[in-house]
Write a protein that binds this DNA or RNA. Structure first.
Lengths: 104, 104
DNA sequence: GTGATTGTTCGATCGTCATCGTACTACGAT
DNA sequence: ATCGTAGTACGATGACGATCGAACAATCAC
């Protein structure tokens, strides 16, 4: 049986804009967010191509999740992360689109 | 005669989204940005009510200016800072409004 | 079971940054 | 010129965070 569990994350009303902006302001994390934005079905940690080691990758994914930017579900040994687009759009309408509109 | 000079700042195309997000992610700076958003005519450094000393205030204003978030003009001994709304809206449409929509 | 895969957690290191006080500059008023 | 005001620049400190390697945990395949 494929057990699937959600990792802890802040509720929508607990999300703080400073934490979101700080999370998005780190280059590696912004790169992750761009990849997640291009993959609505979510991405497993290991599938992200990043210039850092696996432990640093885990650290950034945790930061994004705890800031309320992403949600993570375990699928077997994989952990699928997705953007919390609805929550972010509801809290800060236009913010995410504006960030994603930035030239790379 | 009232001499008026603009302090150096990045051109629109030099603005990096990481720097903008990082600048906005600091609580004191976000407070400054909120105050500037409420005062389209600009605010002098000393008129900002912040829980930090003058030197820290100057540091944050410099960070915002160098990130491309604000512009600063000298008016006598005062330095008037304004939000670069047009540039930010052009680069990251919706971002600033989204941030300002956040509950305090 | 063993082993391989996937990912996290822990501890350490190193750099960056927010903060402060002090000294300094620039301008205006007297 | 002297004084007061507005703000910056510098140097130091302390805290936070990005990074890594190594050890650990959980699941799947065999």
């Amino acid at each position: 049986m494929a057990t699937s569990k959600s990792l802890p994350q802040p509720d929508r009303e607990e999300i703080r804009v400073e934490a979101v902006l700080q999370a998005l302001g780190e280059p590696v994390r912004l790169q992750i967010v761009r990849a997640l934005a291009a993959a609505p079905e979510g991405i497993a940690c290991g599938e992200l191509e990043l210039p850092v080691t696996a432990s640093t990758r885990a650290h950034h994914l945790r930061t994004l999740r705890e800031a309320g930017v992403t949600s993570t579900q375990t699928e077997g040994t994989k952990r699928i992360s997705k953007l919390r687009r609805e929550d972010l759009e509801s809290l800060y309408p236009g913010l995410l689109n504006g960030v994603l509109a930035a030239p790379r």
